[in-house]
Structures are given as structure tokens and as C-alpha cells.
């Protein structure tokens, strides 16, 4: 299983700073008046129900969501002035899996702008890519089409793509969604290793017990910041019901705060199902 590492805040300048940020798409704000800082070496999980703005928060750091007010800086530079070069692993479901690229080509895209203007890749770039595939255990798949891989292998391809440019900051959108338990643990161990090598990691997740409880720092989000801190402090019934809008009993077990969870909480508002929910037995009874 994963070993939680203590969160060691480093003195100095923040790597990412959001100041009174209101952002969204097509004129519709998703997050309002949000302020956050991420220090170099942070390993942070973003938690919240679907539609809470987790992905939008990642995308505004990338400079890919519309910023309506406030300021986002990465390394002290505003994302409006220059889009930051960060490693980004999108949700797998947003990828066009019928696109004709091999594993090797997909990862090579990560070094696109190191050598612009030419269609062929340097041997040096190929070496870097193959080393990265080796490190993630998918070197034998390099000539395969990306559709021919399992979910865990696909996740590694895009992780490799994000890592080939040696980013200091890695943003991952649901890196453990749709993979089996073994792969999930592998991915999380890999992220911990990368974090120990000095890479700052910000990831979103739906998995409270399996993923978020093992992270050094979590942020609960539902269109605004509801709580922030180590999971043991943050995971309380009050915070979680504020975040997910559902009762979620918390159990303390060997130094971990575990949640008798509803992993994908229902928003019963407006569905006319409130009366049904009321008659369901509380989930804590099953534990």
C-alpha cells in the first residue's frame, strides 16, 4: 500500500499562486473569487463532486480556461502573459483514441517545441522517450497504436508524454479513474517517487479512501475552497457533507481518516428524489 509522506512546506516563493480568481468558459464562471498557493514540492489532491470545478482549476493554471478576474501566476509569471510549460495529463476520456498515433509518437509530442520546424525527431529525443517508456514499464508497447492498450497502459502513455519535457509542475486530471487496483497503486507510487524527486504535483480525484487519504495535502472544492490541509484534519463529516452535499461518516483507522463514502455523490436537488434518499439506510451501517 501507499506510504503517506509528511507534507513538508518549503520556504520561498510559491510555484503557483491564484489570487481572487474567477474563471470559467464562454462567459460562465465556474470558480469564483478563489485564492490558493502551491509551494515547490507540494503533492496536493483536489476533491469535490462532479461539476465542482476541479478540472477548471487545473485548466486555469494551464491558461486553458477563461480568466474573468484575479490573477494566476506560475513561477511568478502571469499565465495571461505566457502559458506555462507544465506537464499535464488530461482525463483519459477526453482523448481521441481513434487518432492515428503510436505510443512512441504520442510521447514524442511531449518534446514538440524543443526542436520546432522539423518533422523528424532527433536521436536524442528518441532516446529520452524510450528511457521514459522504460521507466514506466511500457517500452515494449512503443510501436502499438494507443487504442490497443489497457486503461493503465494508456494512463502511463500520457504520464510519459507529460514527463519527457522534465516539468517542475505536474497536473493530473483523475489519473486513477478507470484503472484496476494494482495499476492505481503503481500510478500512486510513481507519483510519490516523482514528488520525492522534487516535482510538484496537483491532481484531481474521486477516490477519497484509496487515493486522497494517502496524500500529504488535500483541498475540498465545490466552486469555492471549503477546506484545505492534511486528510486527517480535513476529512470530517462536516467538511465532507459541505463538499458533497451528502452525509459521510468518517472512521479513524491506523492514523488514516477513512470515509464510508459515496464515491460519486448524487445531487438530489432538483431531481425530485429527496424523499427517496430519506428512506435509504445510512451507509455507515454497512461498514
Amino acid at each position: 500500500m501507499l506510504h503517506p509522506f509528511p507534507h513538508k512546506p518549503v520556504a520561498g516563493n510559491p510555484l503557483v499562486r491564484l489570487e481572487n480568481v474567477t474563471c470559467g468558459y464562454n462567459g460562465q464562471p465556474v470558480l469564483r473569487d478563489l485564492s490558493l498557493t502551491f509551494m515547490p514540492g507540494d503533492f496536493v489532491g483536489l476533491l469535490g463532486p462532479s461539476g465542482s470545478g476541479k478540472t477548471t482549476l487545473l485548466r486555469v493554471i494551464l491558461g486553458a480556461a477563461d480568466l474573468y478576474s484575479g490573477q494566476v501566476t506560475v513561477n511568478g509569471v502571469s499565465t495571461l502573459r505566457k502559458r506555462p510549460r507544465v506537464g499535464y495529463v488530461p482525463q483519459l476520456e477526453t482523448i481521441d483514441w481513434n487518432f492515428p498515433v503510436t505510443v512512441q509518437e504520442a510521447v514524442l509530442m511531449g518534446c514538440t517545441m524543443n526542436n520546432p520546424l522539423f518533422p523528424w525527431f532527433h536521436r536524442r529525443e528518441l532516446t529520452v522517450v524510450m528511457e521514459m517508456l522504460e521507466r514506466l514499464g511500457i517500452a515494449h508497447l512503443s510501436k502499438r497504436h494507443i487504442r490497443e492498450l489497457s486503461g493503465g497502459e494508456q494512463q502511463r502513455v500520457f504520464l510519459a508524454r507529460a514527463l519527457v519535457s522534465n516539468p517542475r509542475l505536474l497536473l493530473l486530471d483523475e489519473p486513477t479513474a478507470g484503472v484496476d487496483i494494482k495499476t492505481r497503486d503503481d500510478v500512486m507510487h510513481l507519483l510519490h517517487d516523482l514528488n520525492h524527486q522534487g516535482i510538484t504535483i496537483i491532481m484531481t480525484t474521486h477516490e477519497i479512501n484509496a487515493v486522497a487519504a494517502h496524500l500529504p495535502w488535500v483541498i475540498c472544492l465545490n466552486r469555492r475552497i471549503l477546506a484545505e490541509g492534511p486528510p486527517i484534519d480535513v476529512f470530517t463529516s462536516e467538511t465532507l457533507s459541505l463538499t458533497y452535499g451528502a452525509e459521510m461518516p468518517v472512521i479513524h483507522y491506523r492514523g488514516l481518516a477513512l470515509v464510508a463514502e459515496r464515491p460519486h455523490p448524487f445531487t438530489t436537488e432538483g431531481l425530485g428524489r429527496d424523499h427517496l434518499e430519506a428512506h435509504e439506510p445510512p451507509e455507515g451501517k454497512h461498514v
Partner: peptide, 23 residues
Amino acid sequence: VVFLYRELVQSTFDPDLARTSGV
């Protein structure tokens, strides 16, 4: 097409990912 090969492929595949690589 030859000289913009990388940019064209990247921005066709996934514009957001392309932007994070500086395209």
C-alpha cells in the same frame, strides 16, 4: 506541412495538450 509537422499534429490531436507543450 513539413516544417510545421509537429505543430500541426499536436494541435490536431489535442489543442489543450499542444498548448502545454508551447505550440
